[in-house]
């Protein structure tokens, strides 16, 4: 059986900036082809430095990076062909037209004009920017600028797409359309690494997750395994009528938020059936129920807090 080359292999990666700040402390992780991976971490954890090294914008201090089996120290030029990067900050010429920015990027990858024009049209249409192709880029809205950077990163059709907080400051509707686009290109075989502060986004899109904190990988696993680590969840129940006293149920902790809203902590070993039953028995109907916080968010906070105390 043929073993597929990993899309990205990072080994013992270190980065010490001028002045002595160590942004990365020997991190290692691997991303398989076709994966959709979340790279999470608090601000200043080392995510952007890692992406910078993979995309050649930051010089590493030591360690190795292989992209589609190509060591960046041996043939960075070849390795770069496999990578598309959508950075956190807008980094295109604000005075250039939208289509020119995308076509020019194709040219930098040695793609002929005709193919570059076809690809520019394809990705600008997919990202809803074709109507703005002759617009000067500084006139675009923030969301459009982010989509422009995705179109630009896709124009050479990379095997590995890295997105550094692509949906920051983007409205919900637009964010969802960007999710659809990313899911679609992932289905077509593009490996995706996503950094985001919206943990709901990571939970919804990504199969695997690495959490980086203070320059170290503190968690690297698949999303399901990670979520299984959650000991308990807090649910918020909206009641059909007001109550004055909380029900009593052994093993469950209830809190009254207001007269018709109750919070309850449910351990992994428990079910919600007794909760509904206790309200039903006292003649109170539960109108709706939701998680108090995103499940991944709870885990993320606990993992990062643990890494700080360790």
């Amino acid at each position: 059986m043929e073993i597929m080359t990993a899309a990205l292999v990072v080994k013992d990666l270190n980065k010490v900036y001028k002045g002595g700040f160590q942004a990365l402390k020997g991190i290692s992780f691997q991303v398989e082809q076709g994966d959709f991976m979340a790279l999470l971490g608090p601000n200043g954890a080392g995510k952007s430095t890692t992406i910078g090294i993979i995309s050649s914008l930051v010089n590493k201090s030591s360690g190795s990076v292989e992209i589609m089996g190509v060591d960046i120290d041996k043939d960075f030029s070849l390795a770069k062909k496999f990578v598309g990067v959508v950075p956190q900050e807008f980094n295109f010429n604000q005075f250039e037209k939208v289509a020119d920015i995308v076509r020019t990027q194709a040219g930098y990858f040695g793609i002929d004009k005709d193919i570059a024009s076809e690809r520019a049209e394809k990705y600008l249409k997919l990202l809803g920017l074709w109507g703005k192709r002759d617009e000067v880029s500084r006139n675009l809205s923030g969301g459009m600028k982010r989509r422009l950077m995705i179109a630009r990163a896709m124009v050479h059709e990379p095997a590995l797409l890295i997105l550094d907080e692509p949906t920051a400051g983007v409205d919900i509707e637009l964010r969802r359309s960007m999710w659809d686009f990313l899911v679609e290109i992932n289905k077509q075989g593009t490996t995706i690494i996503l950094t985001t502060h919206y943990l709901e986004e990571a939970e919804q899109l990504c199969r695997n997750i690495a959490i980086i904190d203070n320059g170290e990988i503190v968690e690297n696993t698949d999303m399901k395994s990670l979520l299984r680590k959650l000991d308990s969840e807090t649910f918020v129940l909206d009641l059909a009528k007001d109550i004055e006293e909380l029900p009593e149920l052994a093993g469950y902790a209830f809190r009254l938020v207001d007269a018709h809203t109750v919070e309850v902590d449910v351990a992994k070993s428990q079910t919600l059936t007794p909760v509904f039953a206790v309200f039903s028995d006292s003649g109170v109907e539960v109108k709706s129920m939701r998680n108090k916080t995103n499940r991944l968010e709870e885990l993320f906070v606990s993992i990062v807090e643990k890494s700080i105390t360790d």
Binding site: L57, K80, K81, N91, N93, Y108
Partner: peptide
């Protein structure tokens, strides 16, 4: 100005020698 606007990164991430 390409440095200032960071659009130099478009070139740096590409395989252009």
């Amino acid at each position: 100005s390409t440095k200032f606007q960071r659009s130099i990164e478009e070139l740096l991430v590409s395989p252009t020698p």
